[in-house]
């Protein structure tokens, strides 16, 4: 996977995460709202940074999809939390790919973002995974 492909996958994943956080983040209890807002802000900011990287590489960032399929029972706080945990853990693997495809400075950012998202997933109730990759162990 070259750098452009790896970062395009990041942008696509961040777009899905922004959508998921926008919908699911509104369903969690008031005590978790701050966490949801912080997560949404991080996803938006990292999406912009990843898109800018692709532009620097001389390519166009992929467009966001019109919408995404979310679990039918997203309105329950439990499913909302599991959904956010799932997208965060999925992005860990996508950022690890992007880290591998990038030089040192960008790689540092990618690896730190992967770690930040893995921590965020635990905050939403996910079980720890040896190699974070998706929603499998989100509760």
């Amino acid at each position: 996977m070259n750098a452009t492909e790896a970062w395009a996958a990041v942008v696509t994943g961040e777009d899905a995460a922004i959508y998921a956080y926008s919908v699911a983040g509104a369903q969690v209890a008031a005590g978790s709202r701050q966490r949801a807002v912080a997560g949404l802000t991080a996803h938006q900011s990292n999406r912009s940074r990843a898109a800018a990287l692709i532009t620097e590489l001389g390519d166009d960032p992929p467009p966001a999809a019109a919408g995404y399929v979310l679990p039918a029972d997203i309105a329950t706080a439990k499913v909302a939390r599991a959904t956010m945990a799932g997208v965060d853990n999925a992005l860990v693997a996508i950022y690890a790919d992007a880290a591998a495809a990038s030089g040192a400075d960008i790689r540092r950012w990618a690896a730190r973002t992967a770690a930040e998202y893995a921590v965020r997933a635990i905050g939403w109730g996910a079980d720890p995974q040896a190699f974070p990759a998706g929603p499998a162990s989100a509760q």
Partner: peptide, 15 residues
């Protein structure tokens, strides 16, 4: 279809 590819593609990224 785009929607299906969107979150599902992300959510189903298995190990």
């Amino acid at each position: 279809i785009t929607r299906r590819q969107g979150l599902l593609a992300l959510a189903l990224l298995g190990p």
